[in-house]
Simulated assay, not measured.
Amino acid sequence: MKIAFYGSSLLSAYWNGAATYYRGLLRALSERGYDITFYEPDAYSRQDHRDIDPPDWCTSVVYPATREGLLGAVAEARNADIVVKASGVGYEDDALAALLLEKAAPDALTVYWDVDAPATLAELAAAPDHPLNRMIGRFDLVLTYGGGPPVVDAYRAAGARDCVPIYNALDPATHHPVPPDPRFAADIAFLGNRLPDRERRVESFFLEPAASVPRARFLLGGAGWDGKPMSDNVRYVGHVGTADHNAFNTSPKAVLNISRESMARTGFSPATRVFEAAGAGACLITDAWEGIELFLVPGEEVLVARDGQDVAEILQDLTPARAEAIGKAALARVLAEHTYAQRAVIADNLFHDQHSLRRRATMRERAV
């Protein structure tokens, strides 16, 4: 089957945390026989910060962020069996959704794929007249990369015909153990861009513990933290390209995951960083959120911190031997249960079942 997938960017992870998810899942779907074309707008300087070349498992189309470019990209949807509109494309999202619903072939399966469901649902709840509130029930299926029961229930209440989480996962071909790199040597490291609903939590879970444990070495990566006050034991390295993520995860004694406020509140929302770190065999410390035990066993495969004080205490008590044991256990767990190949099986089954239902409904409509 042919998939026309409209998302933020496949080629660039620059200010685009969904890139890892797109790459892992779409490559796995390609290996299951899907013919995929990914359409992304030339926006936010992402094409100036490409970190992969166009892949051989997916056709990549970059269209101008103009009305004409949008219309040209949307016109191609009529040739697909499955048309996917991802959240947060970054250029005329509402118009793109409406046009895709209009231009998709009558028997095509239409999917709204939310790569930040907590934020999307909060936006819809705050604006009852939001265009997506009127459109969500017209999509055959809503998929999300996290959120669990709270998100499923919220989307169904918003009128979605069905909602199924396809969680973040690991692509072992791109995220795996590598030798430590002196550039990223530290006792604990955090990688994440500076965002409004994350900044206070980074202060609490990373910067405040750094100030309270001055002898420990803290490493901060990600865009936007220039000028942020931080203690002398914090080393800021700026944007870290995906080619360096494995080394960033394997070099420190521990790696910290800090969820954005909306994701922590919703729960069941493991970030791509969780699986990247586990896939590299890193000792992961994560902030506490409901549902973590569905993915990793607290105390054995991941360490969980309720606040910054917990982070400081965990770090001071963490021996290299225990860190190594937790990293090995996490790697074994994600390889066994949380790869994109396994997620693709779920998506594949959904697509075939839903596409068959869609075709039968179209045939009934034509017969009337």
Rank of each mutant, 00 (worst) to 15 (best):
A77C: 02
D81W: 05
D81Q: 09
V84C: 06
V84P: 02
K85W: 05
G88Q: 10
G88F: 08
Y91P: 04
L96C: 14
A97F: 02
A98V: 00
L99T: 11
L99Q: 13
A104M: 01
A105Y: 09
P106K: 12
A108V: 01
Y112A: 06
W113N: 07
W113M: 05
W113K: 00
A119W: 10
T120R: 02
E123L: 13
A125N: 13
A125G: 14
A125S: 14
A126T: 05
A126P: 08
D129L: 08
H130R: 03
G137Y: 04
G137N: 10
R138G: 01
R138E: 15
V142A: 05
G148N: 10
D153G: 00
A154S: 12
A154C: 05
R156D: 11
R156E: 15
A157L: 00
D162H: 08
P172V: 09
T174N: 11
T174Y: 15
H175Q: 12
H176G: 09
V178L: 09
D181G: 09
P182F: 11
F184Y: 14
A189E: 10
A189K: 05
F190H: 08
L191F: 07
G192S: 08
N193L: 02
R194V: 03
P196E: 11
P196Q: 10
R200Q: 14
E203Q: 14
E203M: 00
S204M: 03
P209K: 11
A211R: 14
P214T: 10
P214K: 08
R217A: 12
L219H: 10
L220C: 05
G221A: 12
G221P: 03
G221L: 02
